[in-house]
């Protein structure tokens, strides 16, 4: 899922300082699961913002909503009937959701309440870690199911650099070396010969480097 993390409240207060009536829009998708932008976080953030504004003596009215998903057009319609009654929308969906709201409600200013960090997993309750950089050219079949582009700090494709030490990355002693993990996994699978194969220089056109990406499925279009 997409993993996000709340922005500092002071940054949010600065963004909305000139508004007295806003919509705070959460999303029931990924950011609910990673406790960054779901209904619960809407409640907490709204309460915190009200307290801060009361403290400043500048009242604010916050309409708390949580959309089914902010990345699908039909759910964005959930706020259409009342959006014009508010001065701005503070969205705590991922960056895609924030932008999609902005495209949909062109006259209403949209502000992001969270930072969108990565595509990852729930490592354990309260801990999320990155797994995928959506490069658009999956190589997991070559590397024992562990992504070198994401898990190696240098995105090296051909083995561990000289800074791999006791299974850890030179960049951060708490980070596992991606290539040590790949090596261990290939060994486990009896496929160490895969380490000997040179993975060729990457084609980044499928990654962000090729510009904003688009997928069209004619069979699904209406």
């Amino acid at each position: 899922m997409v993993i996000g993390e709340g922005k500092p409240i002071k940054d949010i207060l600065f963004m909305i300082e000139n508004y007295s009536k806003i919509i705070l829009a959460g999303c029931r998708g990924c950011v609910t699961v990673c406790s960054a932008g779901g209904e619960k976080e809407v409640g907490i953030l709204a309460s915190a913002l009200r307290l801060a504004r009361q403290n400043e003596g500048k009242e604010i009215e916050i309409k708390e909503v949580s959309l089914e998903r902010q990345c699908d057009p039909e759910y964005l319609e959930e706020i259409r009937s009342f959006v014009d009654e508010y001065e701005a929308i503070l969205s705590i969906a991922c960056g895609a959701g924030v932008q999609f709201l902005a495209e949909t409600y062109k006259k209403t200013p949209i502000y992001p309440g969270i930072n969108t960090n990565f595509i990852g997993v729930t490592q354990e309750q309260g801990v999320w870690t990155e797994r995928c950089q959506s490069c658009g050219n999956c190589k997991l079949h070559l590397t024992g199911g562990i992504c070198p582009i994401t898990r190696c700090a240098k995105s090296l494709l051909n083995g561990p650099c000289g800074g791999s030490s006791d299974g850890k990355c030179e960049v951060n002693p708490e980070t596992d070396c991606g290539w040590q993990m790949i090596y261990d996994r290939l060994k486990e699978l009896g496929k160490l010969d895969q380490m000997e194969v040179i993975i060729p220089i990457n084609d980044w056109t499928t990654s962000r480097d090729g510009g904003p990406r688009k997928i069209v499925r004619e069979d699904l279009k209406l």
Binding site: A153, L157, N158, E170, V171, N172, I198, N202
Partner: peptide, 28 residues
Amino acid sequence: LSGDHQKFGDQSTAKNVYDMDSIHLIQT
């Protein structure tokens, strides 16, 4: 060479490139 990660240097907020690795550079 692939090079030391920028984290160690005096420009730790830089974006790294790593369009290729050291083996690709040899090939190039």
